[in-house]
Write a protein that binds this DNA or RNA. Structure first.
Lengths: 346, 346
DNA sequence: TTGAAAGCGCTAACAA
DNA sequence: TTGTTAGCGCTTTCAA
């Protein structure tokens, strides 16, 4: 039952191994009859080429990889599908590789690039405090997609596609303010978050300031670090505590849609209504938010665009184009039914 | 920028390449000083071993793979996390590999097994009409996890862990009947489904029969094949049409939790209440169903158990144990707030 | 149109 | 404790 190799097939077919290789790879310079004969034997003996040997030997592949940190992240799930569709359209083959929670994205990328002789890499998530040096050692083009962009420390010498989390978060809170809300609670990231959580909180603060609303620290509720980040359970727990406290507010801004569902539950359990008693605003624009009841007003990230731009950037770079371009996309505030205008006297 | 190899490191360190290899692999028979010196150079030059060469050369690895068909399936997402935790505990390293929608699981498994010299494989999902022959050609133990088990055509000569979809579905519908429901609509799988969709529908029919409720074809609503399978949108659309038809029913059994959220929305939009106007029953037991409003009564699959058993089975088989054992686990009906009892006169 | 042969980068005997 | 060497299974010159 030891594995059958190209050599065995060659022997069986009474040809050289290079001829078998040609048959497998559909080399133009092979007799069609010979090829057919070999392919039949391969089929019959269930021969499967060893990819390790292939990758080792080939000087280059036509493969690009999608490296995902946080495969269980709902938001990436949606993007994955778009990537699959878009990547089908180009002449490159691609592979999706999940990076474990405890692994270092850059190291994984390095290994994978060598192993598969990748032409390029797209990073989805992760790389919070990535080392530019390490990434540049990849020796191949890469694009950072949806990796938190800090506007105060703009990136350079890299390709990236993202939204301005601070600005978009500002948009959300500004919208609430314009709707007359002055007491806006925020279900924020973990207290020591330096990624999107921090940026979205910054946007909240700025919007409040610009709207002449005093910042009130008691309205800022951080995610529980003992619960899964950005999870429904986390949103529920934090909002529940908000409801149980005597804090007074008219709107709750939840920095991720999934947590907003948990927030809904906590509000309902407190015997309150959305949006009559509390307006709720989400962030991300997950498809599922349309089916919340009431449907969730949220900031929708331009997933489709992000995917397309990131692929374009990578293709350009592979073809020798620019290696330094940061694309910042606008998100889209979706007005739905979870936010209501409140009167002046509120 | 051509890639640096073990040879280069050997030259730089003035040692043989096997010594470098020993340093990398922490071979017991190496001088600690030499090793340290080599490791330092490796660090300095950012040398990364080529896994293809490694895999090719090594006669065996200590790796098992988790092969997932339908990485975007919410249900698998939850299991993934449990797998990550459980697999950390054993002495094998593991990799998660997503099988594309258009790829054949068995072929992917075959390739991967060769490429990585896998010790074993766990299949998550997929393999609806798998070829036993092809799978056995793997030459390594494998476990089928949550792959629809047809009770009329029991598997043999394989390792599997699953629930009896028909029986558990029966449980759900029987529960509804016992609660007094006689007009129970089902949001089923696609019309030509031969996997869990069909089995769950069978369970529905049997439960009805055993409870003396006449089967009414107009109460069976199939998933839209033009929409994503088991998606919220699909559940919404199908339920919406049910609401718009003049069909009379008191309960709606949705064969997947996510679709149930869509069903909720359609019911609410029709101006109806859950469970007052319609009782709703789900299936799968996703964590998020606790946060539905009202919380969803559903059949919870024993994910944690499935994961543990599948790993155990695989370990046993690798250690030369049995190669033929099918484990059928019981699911757990979670009574929550979306189902109510109705009077005799209904 | 084909086959022989050289290696891709690594590990694992085997010798030293 | 180390170095030399023979492949792992494949692709790809090169020559026939």
């Amino acid at each position: 039952m030891s594995a059958i190799t190209i050599k065995d097939i060659a022997k069986i077919c009474n040809v050289g191994i290079s001829t078998v290789s040609r048959a497998i790879n559909d080399d133009p310079g092979i007799n069609k009859n010979t090829q057919e004969r070999i392919l039949k034997v391969i089929e019959e003996y269930h021969y499967v080429p060893n990819n390790s040997a292939r990758n080792l030997k080939m000087t280059e592949s036509n493969t690009i990889a999608l490296l995902i940190k946080g495969i269980d992240n709902q938001f990436f799930q949606g993007m994955l599908k778009i990537y699959e569709e878009e990547l089908k359209k180009i002449e490159y083959s691609f592979l999706i590789h999940a990076v474990g929670e405890d692994q270092d994205d850059a190291s994984v990328a390095l290994e994978l690039a060598k192993e598969k002789r990748l032409k390029g890499i797209i990073f989805l998530g992760g790389l919070i405090n990535y080392s530019e040096e390490k990434l540049n050692m990849l020796g191949i083009p890469y694009v950072l997609c949806t990796v938190a962009a800090n506007p105060e420390k703009p990136r350079h010498n890299c390709l990236s596609v993202s939204i301005n989390d601070e600005k978009e978060s500002y948009k959300a809170v500004d919208y609430l303010c314009k709707k007359g809300h002055k007491k806006i609670a925020i279900i924020a990231g973990k207290e020591n978050d330096y990624g999107v959580g921090k940026l979205r909180l910054e946007g909240y603060k700025k919007a409040l300031e610009d709207n002449g609303v005093a910042y009130d620290a008691s309205l800022v509720r951080y995610m529980k670090s003992e619960l899964t980040e950005f999870s429904v359970a986390n949103g529920y727990q934090v909002t529940k505590e908000l409801m149980e406290s005597s804090i007074d507010c008219t709107a709750i801004y939840v920095i991720s849609d999934l947590m907003a569902l948990g927030a809904y539950k906590a509000v309902f359990e407190a015997g309150k209504k959305i949006p009559e008693d509390y307006s709720v605003m989400g962030f991300d624009g997950l498809e599922v938010t349309k089916y919340f009841h009431p449907s969730l007003t949220t900031v929708e990230q331009p997933c489709s665009q992000m995917v397309k731009h990131s692929i374009e950037l990578l293709m350009d770079a592979i073809d020798g184009g620019t290696e330094d371009k940061q694309i910042l996309l606008d998100a889209d505030l979706q007005e739905r039914d979870s936010v209501t205008e409140i009167g002046q006297g509120a």
